[in-house]
């Protein structure tokens, strides 16, 4: 039975507000977009050398990259958000790599997977680009030769953190 009176009305309004707080989250659009982006990063299917094998390993059953929302390797760069440069980039490959990067739609991110992509690795010679950051901007560097799938996943989570952190600033 409802009790009339100003005090009762106030109590009912308070209760409603509390219910509302429980059921509705407020945030900014930027943060929400970043949350959505973070949870479904689709990498480009772009394997170069040894690291590509470990990248396949990361996508396969044991390491299961799908847990983080990115098992879907896209063959077309147009549908991809993330370029994992998995291996050494030769002088002949460099223009192709840049071309693929340019084809990707914004927003896009790059992980330099492995030592060769990060800085040239054990190869220091005429044939290789010493670090892929000379061609495309790199968001996360993953060290290792080749990095273990766990390392790639860690780098991937760092990228997710970065996407969350830089929401709205891009």
């Amino acid at each position: 039975m409802a009790v009339a009176g100003p005090a009762a009305e106030r109590a009912a309004a308070d209760g409603e507000a509390a219910q509302f707080e429980k059921r509705v989250l407020t945030t900014t659009v930027d943060r929400m977009v970043a949350w959505a982006r973070r949870g479904s990063i689709w990498p480009a299917q772009f394997g170069l050398a040894c690291c590509a094998i470990e990248m396949m390993g990361a996508a396969a059953a044991r390491f299961d990259m799908a847990r983080f929302g990115s098992e879907l390797f896209r063959a077309s760069p147009r549908q991809a958000d993330l370029l994992i440069v998995s291996g050494r980039v030769s002088q002949k490959m460099a223009p192709v790599l840049r071309h693929i990067y340019d084809q990707m739609l914004e927003p896009k991110w790059v992980i330099a997977m492995g030592d060769c992509a990060s800085c040239g690795g054990v190869f220091n010679n005429y044939a290789l680009v010493q670090g892929v950051d000379k061609i495309v901007p790199v968001d996360v560097y993953v060290a290792g030769c080749p990095p273990r799938p766990e390392a790639l996943l860690y780098g991937f989570m760092k990228l997710q953190e970065k996407i969350t952190r830089t929401a709205g600033r891009r």
């Binding site: 002088q91 002949k92 040239g120 220091n124 010679n125 005429y126 044939a127 010493q130």
Partner: peptide
């Protein structure tokens, strides 16, 4: 076959430098 078509020189010749960057 291996290098880009516009490449100059022949890398496995001994007088072609390895062109290492200092580390």
């Amino acid at each position: 076959i291996l290098l880009p078509d516009d490449w100059g020189g022949h890398p496995l010749r001994k007088d072609f430098p390895l062109t290492e960057e200092p580390v």
